[in-house]
Design a protein around this nucleic acid. Structure first.
Length: 647
RNA sequence: GCCUGGGUAGCUUAGCGGUAAAGCGCGUCCUUGGUAAGGACGAGAGCCCGGGUUCAAAUCCCGGCCUAGGCUCCA
């Protein structure tokens, strides 16, 4: 930092890297006015070293300052925060002061406010929206006020949750800030817009329960979700996008395409795969099977049920029992497997190994069972029974790096094949963990260097690793924006200890191998969900349950239609034999998301050709059977995303 | 598990105290039709389950099950 010009002045750093000299007691707003009066009057809030603050906040020497105006990306957050306040004000106007306030922040998509002692249901939302609209119409000034802790306690006497927050704030400083609008005020760090009139189009979306501070032992509060935009048009666009996302929901498409069902009689979270769905899963399995074979994996198979002796040994019984299905058979206790690793460790342990044998790589499409909380179950994304494309490697410490690299490469191959978007996180040592400092450090630095080499963006989640080792997680988002874990690579120093795994080293001594857990898809269920939503059910040819459909124009062409189908016998092909018009048959094929339709009428029959139509409504007539066969065979083999014969 | 919605025909939904509806799909027939819904007729519903209120319950009340969206955890 350069020395400020005036003796009592300080310098702040602007986004373009230039420095601005201001008085030592300057606020964000003062700085803005210093830059220009237009910017000064437009200032809504500021960002100090990336943290959103009120425009009244003081700046300090050397801070990176960004001015937030109604043109900034952050403006929506500020405005939504004010909308959350307005919601709370509307609630207290309609339900009285006995309602207790918790917190009300903006979120990625809108805002929420948590209340206690509030009995509200969805029928009340329109009234609350109307009340909010009238608060917006009243154009109440939103005023910021710094208040001593003592006075704040006084003002918040009947707000127990606010008092709890205040206790923590008291440890940080002498004063806190209040924001008021009209008759209503709230303990709040801000920032906010200047008046309720600046809040644009508001919509309340949902009521949900939420534990105070997310802790199950705390009281459950009533959370009202809403969103706000600057204009009605923006709001309508948002609602439309939300509706479109629902159209992509894998549960809806799964039902339409007869991929799977989850039925009351069979139990929750236990999906049944119908023939079309199983077809896709088999294709996925053989794809990863090829990768596994190329990478030197050996397939193994383990039962779904083991005596709990195994789970005691692995530590699952002690740490994971609540999530396991456990039952007695005679005098013995058994459990459905929640993970495949103990079974694989048991296979490894069953013989002696030389350092020359390692790495040993076991693979299994292993079905596991986890007793998740009922309220968490959802479609294929969270189920009780699911199949992991599991792999467990038993490696020497010096082999970790090469193996992790190979796994990451396999994961990339898969993600690129499907053209998926994902996020990557490196999870490091948690407080409670097993293994020496030395091996943790080595393991973490290996994972980190592999990530660095791969040149992908990733986040480090400190302390988020498993107790038995660090891991790299790949995450996906579903149609409605929730994120889910997919591919994963985990190092494990614990299981080898528990199973007393060893190999004989060059020195003729027993050594402890390191175990690597990895899933390329993660779970088939979740990956299937991601794919269904990613493609909106329009699977690439190689995955499509029905790849080709022959549509005869009239019954007279039925025999020829079957001849054509026979020519494509190495594909999943059907003939539409229904008594429907051609238009109807085309419509049905589109609805069923068949990649290619082969239309055959008298013309085609006469010269032994087909008319090829794809899911984009493009069509070519008089296509030679062999030409088309060569094309689709290549399209399938190369796992191309879109049917491209006509493109 | 907890909070707030929802559960009516194979699917999507209407009905919300008084004889169970519609569209799609399905079946039969007519039609043999050249590019995203040809026509007629028909079958198909313990209105999620159990209790209660009522002359009368799909509808109101209570309990359960399932489901959607949240909260904590996880592939």
């Amino acid at each position: 930092m350069s020395e400020p010009d005036s003796q009592h002045g300080i310098a702040v750093v602007l986004p373009d890297g230039s420095e601005l000299d201001v008085d030592a007691d300057a606020t964000v707003e003062d700085c803005a006015y210093e830059i220009g009066p237009g910017l000064g009057s437009d200032t809504v809030a500021g960002k100090l070293d990336g943290e959103l603050v009120a425009k009244e906040a003081s700046v300090y020497d050397g801070v990176n300052l960004e001015i937030v105006t109604d043109q900034s990306d952050e403006y929506l957050d500020v405005m939504r925060h004010s909308a959350a306040h307005t919601l709370a004000q509307a609630v207290e106007r309609q339900f009285g002061d006995d309602v207790q306030l918790a917190i009300g922040p903006p979120t990625d998509e809108g805002f929420y406010y948590d209340f206690d002692q509030l009995d509200v249901d969805e029928d009340d939302l329109p009234d609350l929206e109307a009340e909010m609209a009238s608060i917006v119409d009243e154009d109440l000034d939103i005023e910021r006020e710094e208040v001593s802790i003592a006075e704040a306690e006084d003002r918040l006497a009947d707000e127990p949750y606010k008092l709890e927050l205040l206790e923590e704030l008291a440890a940080e400083g002498e004063t806190v800030t209040f924001y008021s609008q009209g008759e209503w005020e709230d303990l709040c760090a801000g920032p906010h817009v200047d008046s309720t009139g600046e809040i644009g189009a508001v919509k309340l979306l949902e009521i949900a329960g939420a534990y105070w501070r997310g802790d199950e032992d705390n009281p459950m509060q009533t959370r009202i979700y809403g969103t706000a935009f600057e204009s009605e048009t923006d709001l309508e666009e948002f609602l439309e996008r939300r509706e479109e996302a629902r159209e992509r929901d894998h549960r809806k498409i799964g039902n339409e395409m007869n991929l799977f069902s989850i039925q009351d009689v069979t139990g929750p979270g236990l999906p049944l795969y119908h023939p079309p769905g199983k077809t896709v899963l088999q294709e996925l399995s053989s794809f990863v099977g090829e990768l596994n074979r190329d990478a030197g994996y050996d397939y193994v198979e383990t039962p779904h049920v083991f005596k709990t002796d195994l789970w005691h040994r692995s530590g699952h019984y002690e740490n994971y029992k609540d999530d396991m299905f456990v039952f007695d058979v005679g005098d013995d206790e058994f459990g459905l497997k929640p993970m495949n690793c103990p079974g694989h460790a048991a296979i490894f342990q069953d013989q002696s190994w030389s350092y020359r044998d390692l790495p040993i790589r076991y693979a299994e499409d292993g079905k596991v069972y986890r007793k998740e909380q009922r309220g968490e179950l959802s479609g294929l994304s969270r189920v009780w029974s699911f199949t992991i494309d599991d792999g467990h490697l038993f490696v020497r410490p010096d082999q970790i790096e090469a193996e992790v690299e190979q796994i990451i490469e396999m994961i990339f191959t898969v993600l690129e094949t499907f053209d998926l978007e994902y996020e990557v996180a490196l999870a490091t040592r948690p407080e409670k963990s097993v293994g020496s400092d030395e091996i943790w450090e080595r393991a973490e630095s290996i994972l980190e260097s592999v990530l660095e080499e791969s040149k992908m963006d990733y986040e480090v989640e400190h302390g988020d690793g498993a107790f038995y080792g660090p891991k790299i997680d790949f995450g996906f988002e579903d149609a409605i924006g929730r994120s889910w874990d997919g591919p994963t690579v985990q190092l494990d120093f614990n299981m080898p200890e528990r199973f007393d795994l060893s190999y004989v080293g060059e020195d003729n001594e027993a050594h402890r191998p390191v175990m690597i857990h990895r899933g390329i898809y993660g779970s088939y269920e979740r990956f299937f969900m991601v794919l269904i939503e990613h493609y909106e059910g329009n699977f690439p040819l190689w995955l499509a349950p029905e790849q080709l459909r022959v549509l005869p124009i009239s019954d007279d062409n039925l025999a020829y239609a079957h001849e054509v189908a026979d020519e494509f016998g190495d594909f999943r092909v059907e003939v539409d034999e229904s008594d429907a018009t051609l238009g109807r048959k085309i419509r049905a094929a589109h609805d069923d998301r068949v990649p290619y339709q082969l239309i055959v009428g008298d013309d085609e029959e006469a010269d032994g050709t087909i008319s090829v139509r794809d899911r984009y409504e493009d069509q070519r007539e008089g296509v030679d059977l062999e030409t088309f066969h060569d094309h689709v065979a290549a399209e399938r083999a190369e796992k191309r995303t879109d049917p491209d014969f006509l493109q």
